[in-house]
Design a binder for these strands. Structure first.
Length: 356
DNA sequence: CGGTACCCCCGCCACG
DNA sequence: AGCGTGGCGGGGGTAC
């Protein structure tokens, strides 16, 4: 699953979508790294997908816009160390003023607002540089309190507002006090909103299937519709009548050992088999059986990592008919048999790889 | 490891 | 016609 070669190839590919994550002093590190991981994961999966296809076909397959990977980069007020709210420093590749090349997506991480704004004002011209980059970018996004920077740059209500896709759900604003008062809550909420947001952007770029794969890859099981509500029209159009399917998805996640055949699932939501399969694929970007199997593999993987249940217990516990069936599905989906998880030889599924 | 029965998925078309 | 739905068939893959 982890393939440094494919990742490097994706980064050196011509004209990737360049994604900048801006981390000001006082930023929440998870607001920074959450989106970072999502976009990195997307690039890895795209590279793998591309390789799979090029194996079957001859070379020269036209690379469409949709397949462009991301090149993610951390930027700060200047190159080098960035103090974060958690005192875990990050390292910016360059300063915002040094950004001269075309940018696809600019992400402003949230954090300690007072510290962030103080840092901005301490650096003359920084705000102007920020505005310049933001206005050149295809889209600008803020995570959590990163929206304060957008607001003070005048980017939230100007004539350019239509250029911007800002993550500014009312829900988020209301929770501000909680962030500053209770460290436990703000970090988890901040991280998940940042990742949800990035997932939604990836979905806009590449479709729901890839976004879902990343979500599963990073063990982010629950998609939060709140983050989608603020995003692009193509997304909102889809969120019309998804509820039964989404509820069913969580049912699958919580009850992998149930009978989850297509006919059983269709009956559960009161649809015909044919139409259910269609709706499922439309809403979740994946066929029902594939989703069920992926869920079972993931559930099994977690039990293998934490716990000492036998292969037999795990296999039947997550709904596989036999140990052998589980093993085959495991190899097919992760590239390694279940035994590799126990011996620690498999790829870390949610590992952080922030280095470029 | 191989065979076969089964399941899934998708194109197609008929229906309202 | 335009749209969503449901049934059918085959072929491809998988479980046992």
């Amino acid at each position: 699953v982890y393939d440094a070669e494919a990742m490097a190839a994706s980064l050196t590919r011509a004209n990737p979508r360049r994604v900048l994550v801006l981390a000001l002093p006082g930023a929440f590190s998870l607001d920074v790294l959450g989106p970072f991981e999502i976009f990195q994961g997307a690039s890895r999966l795209l590279a793998l997908h591309r390789r799979e296809q090029s194996v079957g076909e001859a070379q020269g397959a036209a690379s469409t816009q949709d397949e462009l990977p991301y090149q993610v980069e951390l930027v700060g007020t200047r190159a080098g160390k960035v103090e974060t709210a958690s005192d875990t420093p990050l390292y910016a590749n360059r300063g915002i003023a040094q950004v001269r090349d075309p940018i696809d997506t600019l992400i402003v991480a949230g954090g300690d607002v007072a510290r962030m704004m103080q840092a901005v004002h301490a650096e003359p011209g920084l705000m102007a540089e920020f505005k310049r980059v933001a206005q050149a970018a295809r889209r600008v996004v803020s995570v959590g309190t990163g929206s304060f920077l957008l607001a003070s740059a005048g980017l939230l209500d100007g004539k350019h507002a239509d250029m911007l896709q800002t993550a500014f759900p009312a829900l988020h604003v209301e929770r501000e006090p909680i962030y500053t008062q209770d460290g436990n809550i703000y970090t988890s909420a901040g991280a998940s909103t940042g990742m949800d947001l990035a997932l939604a952007l990836v979905r806009d770029d590449h479709g729901p299937e890839l976004a879902r794969k990343i979500a599963r890859w990073l063990v982010l099981y629950v998609e939060r519709p709140a983050s989608q509500a603020q995003l692009g029209a193509p997304l909102r159009a889809q969120t019309g009548d998804q509820k039964p399917i989404h509820e069913l998805a969580t049912f699958i996640l919580e009850n992998p050992c149930e009978n989850l055949s297509v006919t059983a699932l269709a009956a559960r939501v009161g649809m015909s088999v044919r139409n259910f399969a269609r709706a499922f694929r439309r809403d979740l970007g994946e066929t029902p059986a594939s989703y069920v199997e992926a869920t079972r593999v993931e559930a099994a993987r977690r039990q293998l990592e934490h716990g000492s249940a036998s292969m037999e217990q795990i296999a039947t516990g997550v709904g596989f008919g036999s140990v052998e069936t589980m093993r085959r599905a495991f190899v097919r989906r992760t590239g390694a048999p279940p035994s590799a998880v126990r011996t620690g030889r498999s790829a870390p599924v949610a590992a952080v790889s922030a280095a470029i």
